[in-house]
């Protein structure tokens, strides 16, 4: 009898809308959140990935993180345990057994999914995080106060935090190589990938490509493009030969992650009408009571 997320949001939306008496609408102070039709994305074909971890190497290089030597990345023992993006590794590859063909394990690269409706953007107290026109979800480190609410909000548990820094600890996550892509470059991981398991392109074209790949190889892929609709859609999407749940990619509904809380939030604060009315109501009660008291005293 598990309550579905959809139901939850429906109720939440109703309550939010009910509280305001109006439909939820974007607040003026909302941070940048552009959903451009031409936004870019990456399609990760996990059936092609060989787990060479060159993407990890290139990513560090592009983000001024010490890389070490390229040979270090041939060490496959790191796959023994599940790794997650960290402050010194914005993307990591995990390996999973392939029951269909034990000789070719499934490698899955993990990084920020760059949601179309990012929970972190909605959550950020200072509006430091933004969804850019090219699809990147990036953050302005000068604004960040280090509250880590984005980490709580993230439906993929991606952002990492520099816990061991006393001064200017920062939120760290994949920025879709915004510094490169804004000038027409391609992300470092996509550029280095020898197998071209990562395809960088316009998101809508990638979606088409993904479905074409599935249609052409129905035995190879499961019929699901992870990220096409999850949490309202993500810029990074996956193809795989087995259920994404078994590849440590969480199951999500199609509802945008920030949905309910934003609806409630705007419900409570719609043009400050609810707080102002509450103020007036309390003032009225107070004033009436005062008159009564005075008349009692007068008698």
């Amino acid at each position: 009898m598990k309550q579905s997320r959809r139901d939850f949001f429906k109720t939440a939306g109703l309550i939010g809308a009910g509280a305001s008496g109006l439909n939820p609408e974007k607040a003026k102070a909302a941070p940048v959140n552009i959903i451009s039709d031409d936004r870019m994305g990456v399609l990760i074909d996990t059936t092609v990935c060989i787990g060479c971890r060159r993407c990890e190497y290139a990513c560090k290089g592009a983000h001024d993180i010490p890389q070490g030597s390229l040979q270090d990345y041939d060490d496959r023992s790191v796959f023994e345990k599940l790794r997650r993006p960290e402050i010194d590794a914005l993307t990591v590859v995990n390996e999973f057994t392939n029951s269909k063909d034990p000789d070719t394990p499934i490698d899955v690269k993990v990084q920020c999914m760059h949601c179309d409706y990012p929970a972190c953007v909605s959550a950020c107290i200072v509006g430091a995080i933004s969804k850019q026109e090219n699809g990147s979800v990036i953050w302005d480190t000068d604004k960040c106060i280090g509250c880590r609410y984005c980490m709580i909000a993230c439906p993929f548990q991606v952002p990492a935090f520099e816990y061991n820094k006393a001064l200017q600890p920062d939120i760290v996550k994949c920025d879709f190589c915004f510094d490169r892509t804004k000038d027409g470059g391609i992300p470092a991981c996509v550029e280095i990938c020898p197998m071209e398991a990562l395809t960088y392109g316009k998101r809508f074209e990638l979606v088409k490509l993904a479905h074409k790949k599935i249609a052409n190889n129905p035995d190879k892929y499961i019929d699901h493009v992870y990220g096409e609709t999850e949490v309202g859609g993500t810029s990074w999407m996956y193809l795989a030969s087995k259920d994404f749940k078994e590849l440590a990619l969480p199951e999500h509904s199609d509802e945008p992650a920030p949905g309910a809380s934003e609806a409630l939030q705007h419900g409570i604060f719609k043009y400050f009408i609810p707080p102002a009315s509450l103020f007036a109501l309390l003032g009225g009660i107070m004033w009436l009571g005062k008159n009564k008291n005075e008349s009692e005293l007068g008698e």
């Binding site: 470059g185 550029e191 020898p194 071209e196 490509l209």
Partner: peptide, 15 residues
């Protein structure tokens, strides 16, 4: 080129 104009097939490195 790594920056592909046609994403329907892999680039040369990928191929």
């Amino acid at each position: 080129s790594k920056k592909r104009t046609d994403i329907s097939k892999p680039g040369l490195t990928g191929a």
